[in-house]
Design a protein around this nucleic acid. Structure first.
Lengths: 198, 198
DNA sequence: CATATTAAGTTAACACTGTTAGCAAATGTA
DNA sequence: TACATTTGCTAACAGTGTTAACTTAATATG
């Protein structure tokens, strides 16, 4: 049994190594630069070994998507706990979202790149639902007497604003957001909050 | 000279043929399914002939991006001319944007797919600026006394809301937007208009 | 008209990519 | 020790974008 544990431990380690190596390439050159052969070489094994840990390349990407949403959710949860006023919570969380997207641009692009295979499975991924739950929590405190349907609607609106601002900026600049971009964000969030109860 | 014209005409025709063939594949299977060899075979020429008309695959994609923004700009211009009230114009144009994105999902994904090479050149592409000019025109009629900076800020906010709603929906469904999605859009636009003058 | 020049189109290759079949060696179990 | 299973390997398949070298056809020039 102990030997078996060693086997399992070794298996987990190489799986971790694969993800670490992949992340290194992702952060430096983006996802499109990641190849199964590069990974294999970097972990010191032959090509098919990678396929023993991940069914295919998309499976590796899915791992990054999940990881990314977890990181985002954690960052927003932390911000949420730093404030008490709901409006301030929401505004600060929006800034956190924005900052996450540009500090982890490679991750963000993987999470939202349109047309990628993993996107079709988006609603099945628990990590995304978990992220949504945190945001809805704050929205609830701003519109307590509303029904679930309206809260969900508002969540979608807010997320759209955040993601829209983020991705439009990535397309236009591929650089960190400047003063004006942040002003746009605050402007949009302000409008969102003002309009939240009809 | 007449013969030379025939030569040029023939060259333009094959270039057109390349784009038509590529579009056929894009609409059926998406951009990732397009390959230079498939194009060559479909137009009845050998591989390098495609490279005589387009420097590389990215150049073909850029053509689609430009084309897509032209289509979008035309659709919104048409909607703009059908109404007189600025608020109604803006609302209807938002719906047009939304409808365009889902009726031409393959195009839209090419226009906004994060991390694609053409995106780094986005601000250089005239077609995108042209699209922006049309939207700013309507925004101006809603906030005439404001300065250019504020108008541009509001344009970005609106575009972000539109693109955000669109892409979030594509990630979650990859299907046409339903009743509720449209409600979210109208809700967001309403908030945007209400907040447009402070 | 014959000839030199340019353009068009060809085949073949390079250097990659994801993925898998078939086989050898190391390990765990009886 | 003998059998079964996992682990890892090499080699290949079927693609991909891209380019060099060559042939053939069309044009322009003497």
């Amino acid at each position: 049994m102990l030997v078996k544990n060693n086997r399992q431990k070794h298996k987990e380690l190489t799986k971790k190594a694969i993800l670490e190596v992949a992340q290194e390439i992702v952060l430096l050159e983006g996802w499109q630069a990641v190849s199964m052969r590069k990974i294999a070489e970097a972990i010191g094994y032959s090509l098919p070994v990678v396929y023993n840990h991940f069914e295919n390349k998309d499976a590796i990407q899915e791992e990054f998507v999940k990881n990314g949403f977890n990181m985002l959710a954690m960052a927003m949860q932390t911000t949420l706990e730093q404030y008490t006023e709901p409006e301030q919570q929401l505004t600060q969380m929006a800034l956190t979202y924005y900052e996450f997207a540009f500090s982890n641009a490679a991750y963000y692009k993987m999470m939202f790149g349109l047309g990628i295979p993993s996107c079709q499975k988006a609603n099945e991924i628990a990590e995304i639902r978990n992220f949504g739950a945190i945001v809805i929590k704050v929205i609830t405190s701003l519109m307590a007497q509303s029904d679930e349907h309206r809260k969900f609607l508002k969540f979608h609106t807010l997320w759209s604003i955040l993601h829209g601002l983020t991705s439009i900026n990535m397309v236009n600049h591929t650089a960190a957001p400047d003063e004006m971009q942040q002003q746009i964000l605050l402007d949009a969030i302000q409008g969102f909050i003002k309009n939240i109860n009809r």
